[in-house]
Design a binder for these strands. Sequence first.
DNA 1: CTCACTTTTTGACCTATGTCAAAGGAATTA
DNA 2: TAATTCCTTTGACATAGGTCAAAAAGTGAG
Lengths: 186, 186
Amino acid sequence: MSITEFLSTIVPFTDDELKDIASHFNKETVLKNQTLVRQGEICNSLYFVEKGMGRSYYLNENGKDITQWFFGVGKFMSSVDSFFQQTPSIYYLEVLQDATLYSISKEDMDRLFAKYHKMEKMGRLVTIEMLTKMVNKLNAIQFQTAKERYDYMLAEFPDIAYQVPLGHIASYLGMTQETLSRIRKG
Amino acid sequence: MSITEFLSTIVPFTDDELKDIASHFNKETVLKNQTLVRQGEICNSLYFVEKGMGRSYYLNENGKDITQWFFGVGKFMSSVDSFFQQTPSIYYLEVLQDATLYSISKEDMDRLFAKYHKMEKMGRLVTIEMLTKMVNKLNAIQFQTAKERYDYMLAEFPDIAYQVPLGHIASYLGMTQETLSRIRKG
DNA sequence: CTCACTTTTTGACCTATGTCAAAGGAATTA
DNA sequence: TAATTCCTTTGACATAGGTCAAAAAGTGAG
């Protein structure tokens, strides 16, 4: 799914608007395992995932790598807080498979928000969607057993669940790799 | 903090705009323990809390009451998903103390979003802030001990933590009341 | 095909927190 | 101020999932 197709599914932009908006995004081809943002850096780009997948993660006190979110095809990928507030990122952002991304800078994004009321609306709606998903994850993590959490993961990221290392999923779900391995076995 | 003061802190509205916007909010005085929205109903209003506090909660499979979020002075209170998508609410919304609220309907809110680009921007920024807070809670719940989670609660809702029943806080933090009682004792 | 490296599985044991039950305290109402 | 109800604390015990360590299974470069 291209960025213009995606935008059109959220708000009815005209062709001219779409053309202008698309012109501010840069196509990037990124190889598997490449890091886009490091902990402590300011996240300068918002990425739209046309192909491939990515994740955000951080290193905890013990240096353990904890997945915070997965980003699949047709989603915006970023260290959201860092990008929008222009503050140091808590998270690393990396690509998990060879990917095609469309990136845009904070300045350009702000210009588009300011220029097009519809773009601002798109931003609001996409953020609400993200908020809803975050609440769903929270409920899963907070009140469900390890098995149920894994089922939630399969439902939320069906395309991703079988394509990334077990450890990434386990940390995303707040359990150890050993526990997830035992759950998967049945 | 009044609704107009609050809006001004987010986006620079003119006085005329503020006046127009404020005219779409209705002041409501609500008594302690009053329910604003029930599980299964569509949440028809977004509330701004001028005075008092509220919470959203739901009843789980065993009929246990689980607090989902607290809303203090100067915040928007709603069953967000239900309000914006106009779908049945998963949550109850109730007032925990005698409160002064400013309510607005979905239609009026949409009209204001459509009329004022700045309002749309305010909506986007408030949603991002909410998203950030939700992520913070998620990290607390997912990776911290019961003691640390309680500390997070004190930091996030200092005004609320000592004014609501222990059980509401315990369920918000994903632990039992007994555990929280033991933690509090030190 | 093989060596080196990464990822997953398995086993034994441990601990934070849950569950259940009952007793104290506080607060609201008559 | 007594009665009723709600809220908090305490104790004894149970368990899901964590930790640590090692074996097994994949994967990829040469």
